[in-house]
């Protein structure tokens, strides 16, 4: 950690940006510095040499806060976050955006498993691939619509128990197998958009397959344009249809699990 400049926060103020060298720093200390810096009015934080620190940005608030991460952050990045933006220039591990309420996480690499668990607002944009159980238990909350966009492919259980919000799978690498098994299993709310059709055998019994209509596309457009800008991709490539829409066939897929369907 650099102690030049602002010793109170334990980091170095460079322009309007606080730079923290996180090498070998425990997550408790790192998060304490981040929280204290935000309280003292710092808006931009650059974390250098991050490797594996858990809970970065845990519960932080403020729409005008930006944290940039160089290195691979640990699990639960942005957990309970309420407003700020986190930009990661590398891969991320598991559980990022856990129960996030507002704000944005942008990942320039790949992501691990269980991304956006119980997420109830904000955006998570992944440039590369993501692992298993993306968007599990994701939900909307009042007017809030959480959005996850994945550029590459994903593992099994995409949208598992999804209750609200929107996920978009772009499959930009055009690989034949861009999703795993059990797609949308237990899904009972929200919507998943696909830029590339997938094998019908992958879908769970609880979902329906539609072609995205104009109102879907106008909703998606602003997010896709933001995604294209964030990752410096040609916007027209991303917004060009057709897109496919996956929605739950019932808001209560298990209503008749223990009773006859006649009831």
């Amino acid at each position: 950690m650099t102690t030049d400049g602002n010793t109170k926060t334990g980091g170095m103020i460079s322009g309007s940006m606080l730079v923290i060298d996180a090498k070998d720093m425990h997550y408790k200390e790192l998060n304490k510095i981040i929280r204290e810096s935000i309280l003292s009015g710092v808006k931009n934080i650059l974390l250098e040499n991050v490797n594996g620190q858990y809970y970065i940005g845990d519960g932080i608030k403020g729409d005008d806060i930006t944290i940039t991460v160089n290195g691979v952050p640990g699990n639960d990045l942005g957990v309970f976050m309420d407003g700020p933006s986190i930009i990661v220039n590398n891969n991320v591990q598991d559980n990022i955006g856990n129960t996030m309420n507002a704000g944005k996480i942008t990942v320039n690499g790949d992501a691990g498993d269980v991304i956006g668990y119980g997420m109830r607002g904000g955006r998570i944009y992944i440039r590369g691939n993501a692992g298993y159980r993306i968007g599990i238990h994701m939900k909307g909350y009042n007017e809030q619509i959480p959005v996850i966009i994945i550029g590459g492919k994903v593992g099994s259980f995409f949208g598992e128990y999804m209750a609200g919000g929107v996920m978009v799978l772009l499959s930009l690498d055009n690989s034949e197998e861009s999703v795993g098994e059990y797609f949308g299993v237990g899904m009972h709310g929200g919507a998943i958009y696909l830029k590339q059709k997938i094998d019908f055998s992958k879908y769970s019994k609880e979902v329906e397959f539609l072609e995205a209509n104009d109102s879907d596309m106008s909703f998606l457009k602003k997010y896709l344009l933001e995604y294209a800008k964030d990752f410096n991709l040609p916007p027209e490539d991303l917004t060009r249809g057709p897109f496919y829409k996956i929605v739950p066939s019932s808001a209560r897929p298990y209503a008749h699990l223990y009773t006859s369907a006649a009831f």
């Binding site: 952050p73 591990q93 598991d94 691990g112 498993d113 593992g155 099994s156």
Partner: peptide
Amino acid sequence: RIKLRPLVAGTKGDFTYIASEESSIRE
């Protein structure tokens, strides 16, 4: 069979690394 625990692999030359977390390999 349904991946309920983390596992990541990496290679560098003749070495292969396996870990519960990617950061462990990058360390």
